[in-house]
Amino acid sequence: MSHDADHLADRYRSGSAWARNAVLVAGAVVVAAAIGWFVWAIWLHSHPKVGSSMDSWELQGPNAVKVTADVHIYDAAAHPSCTVLAYAEDHSTVGFQTFTPISGRQTITIKTERAATSVDWRGCTANGQKDPQ
């Protein structure tokens, strides 16, 4: 029987302790990097440099739309800008404006080519913040 046991031990020899430890360390590094990226992504998206929302819009005749928006600037040094578009009944763009906001509620008047039937608040971006908020 010892011959069979020796034969099995030679055939199914376990790896060296060094190789096992190297795999464990590499796995721990990959897991730590994934956790670090996840925490960074959560922090980045929960702390925008500027945030905004459109409160209302009102047609001001056939060539203008008045938009009321609420903008919160958390980092003024990031030079925020906001974009709003106006669309006609046929869904074509009839006016747009990109502007530098102030923090708080503000009213913007957009000149249009013809009567607008809807307004799209694209949101605000800032240096280092590509996703509109």
Results as ranks from 00 to 15, higher is better:
residue 102 I to C: 01
residue 110 I to T: 07
residue 96 F to A: 06
residue 79 H to R: 05
residue 94 V to T: 14
residue 99 F to C: 02
residue 68 T to S: 08
residue 104 G to D: 06
residue 103 S to L: 09
residue 89 E to L: 10
residue 71 V to I: 10
residue 64 A to F: 03
residue 106 Q to Y: 06
residue 100 T to K: 12
residue 99 F to L: 02
residue 107 T to A: 13
residue 97 Q to C: 00
residue 111 K to F: 12
residue 103 S to K: 11
residue 72 H to F: 02
residue 71 V to T: 01
residue 96 F to G: 04
residue 76 A to P: 08
residue 105 R to I: 13
residue 106 Q to G: 09
residue 84 V to R: 02
residue 113 E to D: 15
residue 62 P to V: 05
residue 71 V to D: 02
residue 68 T to Y: 03
residue 70 D to I: 04
residue 90 D to W: 13
residue 106 Q to W: 10
residue 78 A to F: 06
residue 95 G to Q: 05
residue 78 A to M: 02
residue 103 S to Q: 07
residue 100 T to F: 08
residue 62 P to C: 02
residue 105 R to A: 08
residue 110 I to K: 09
residue 98 T to Y: 12
residue 62 P to K: 07
residue 90 D to Y: 13
residue 108 I to C: 08
residue 61 G to F: 14
residue 100 T to S: 11
residue 111 K to I: 11
residue 70 D to W: 07
residue 73 I to G: 03
residue 111 K to G: 10
residue 95 G to C: 06
residue 65 V to E: 03
residue 75 D to R: 08
residue 91 H to T: 10
residue 112 T to Q: 11
residue 77 A to M: 07
residue 115 A to M: 15
residue 86 A to G: 04
residue 112 T to P: 12
residue 86 A to N: 04
residue 83 T to P: 00
residue 87 Y to P: 00
residue 67 V to F: 04
residue 95 G to S: 05
residue 83 T to S: 12
residue 105 R to G: 01
residue 105 R to W: 00
residue 102 I to Q: 14
residue 70 D to V: 04
residue 88 A to T: 10
residue 87 Y to K: 11
residue 95 G to M: 06
residue 78 A to K: 03
residue 109 T to N: 14
residue 91 H to A: 10
residue 104 G to N: 09
residue 95 G to P: 01
residue 81 S to R: 13
residue 69 A to R: 02
residue 99 F to I: 02
residue 90 D to Q: 11
residue 76 A to G: 03
residue 111 K to A: 15
residue 101 P to N: 01
residue 74 Y to N: 08
residue 79 H to A: 05
residue 94 V to H: 08
residue 108 I to A: 09
residue 78 A to D: 03
residue 114 R to C: 12
residue 67 V to R: 04
residue 81 S to G: 02
residue 73 I to M: 04
residue 81 S to P: 00
residue 93 T to R: 12
residue 62 P to D: 15
residue 115 A to I: 15
residue 83 T to L: 15
residue 60 Q to N: 09
residue 70 D to S: 14
residue 86 A to M: 06
residue 92 S to P: 03
residue 59 L to P: 01
residue 75 D to P: 05
residue 102 I to S: 14
residue 73 I to L: 05
residue 91 H to F: 14
residue 79 H to F: 06
residue 110 I to Y: 09
residue 61 G to T: 09
residue 114 R to Y: 13
residue 77 A to H: 10
residue 61 G to D: 07
residue 86 A to V: 12
